[in-house]
């Protein structure tokens, strides 16, 4: 559905994109994960014909978007990073206006607008001006506005930044629904939890390059850390970190004075940890095993944390 090859883009001296390749199948929900300034928005802007790449090619639904920008635009829905709505118009008027720009019949747009208001749970607020909406509700209409013309592909650029958990969950729910209806979605974010929860496939982008790509599980297996074991001790003062690190390379003490072990095979490690504690007279008060998040993978790949 989306096929991009070797997209390069520079702004003056800043090389924003240094050869991005994307191959996204129809109906796929693809997450583009990266820290601030990684090039997520630039990628979306190029895929949506708003920006011209310096070189490279982009095909969407079989159309070369650089040669057919106008017809390509009808296939594309874009949710901008910032809420872009007319504050003084009602939600319904906003939807009707944005939908009306694609040349579809008015009756079709109207029924689609009502459908979207239902989908996003805002039917009863349809006639309120956007001004009166909460941040989360605005974000919902911001997404709905991109769907009025029934696009084949939806680009969502950090659609959940700075919103309340209720609206966030509503948005996840709607994305799940759109996805199950077969819409192809590219979702950018710097929240790895979102990607883990929502996306089938993830591309990790950093400094304008995709440094890793695959399903969340694939990425996790590729890394040295698949699990994280948190151990709380009754008597943490007695533990000797230096000595611990001799036995277990990847151990740290976190801010709660808990021991954090990173490992690939948690079962084996777990018995080793219990044994060590026993030998050194350390009382375990709780122990907890988690799957490693993509945060760790990013850390391993770049030596930096995803969020600073």
């Amino acid at each position: 559905m989306i096929n991009a090859k070797a997209i390069h883009k520079r702004f003056g001296t800043v090389k924003a994109l240094k050869g991005i390749d994307l191959d996204i199948k129809e109906g796929e929900l693809y997450g583009l994960l990266g820290p601030n300034g990684a090039g997520k928005t630039t990628t979306i802007n190029i895929l949506s014909t708003l920006l011209k790449p310096d070189n490279g090619s982009v095909f969407i639904n079989g159309l070369d978007i650089l040669k057919n920008p106008v017809s390509s635009k009808k296939n594309i829905g874009i949710v901008p990073q910032e809420v872009a709505l007319y504050e003084d118009l009602s939600a319904l008027d906003n939807l009707l206006f944005w939908g009306g720009l694609y040349g579809n019949p008015a009756s079709q747009i109207r029924s689609r607008a009502n459908e979207m208001l239902r989908l996003f749970g805002l039917s009863d607020r349809r006639n309120d001006t956007i001004k009166k909406y909460s941040g989360g509700m605005k974000r919902r209409i911001n997404i709905a506005s991109a769907l009025l013309h029934n696009p084949k592909v939806l680009f969502m650029d950090e659609p959940t930044v700075g919103i309340d958990p209720q609206s966030r969950n509503k948005i996840y729910e709607v994305i799940g629904q759109l996805h199950s209806n077969g819409l192809t979605i590219i979702y950018t974010t710097h929240y790895m939890e979102e990607v883990e929860k929502l996306c089938e496939r993830v591309g990790i982008i950093d400094y304008g390059e995709i440094i890793a790509e695959g399903t969340v599980e694939e990425l996790r297996n590729r890394s040295n850390t698949t699990s994280i074991i948190n151990v709380a001790l009754e008597n943490p003062g007695n533990a000797n970190l230096k000595d611990l690190q001799k036995s277990f390379e990847t151990v740290e003490v976190d801010q709660n004075n808990q021991l954090v072990f990173r490992c690939k095979d948690s079962d084996k490690k777990l018995s080793g940890i219990v044994k060590y504690m026993d030998q050194h007279n350390l009382m375990i008060s709780s122990i907890d095993v988690k799957k490693a998040s993509l945060e760790n993978i990013f850390l391993e790949l770049t030596g930096r944390k995803l969020r600073d």
């Binding site: 949506s48 901008p80 504050e87 944005w98």
Partner: peptide
């Protein structure tokens, strides 16, 4: 400034 121009540019207009 409010981003709606960008959104207008998304459309085939």
């Amino acid at each position: 400034e409010e981003g709606t121009l960008k959104r207008l540019l998304y459309s085939p207009i």
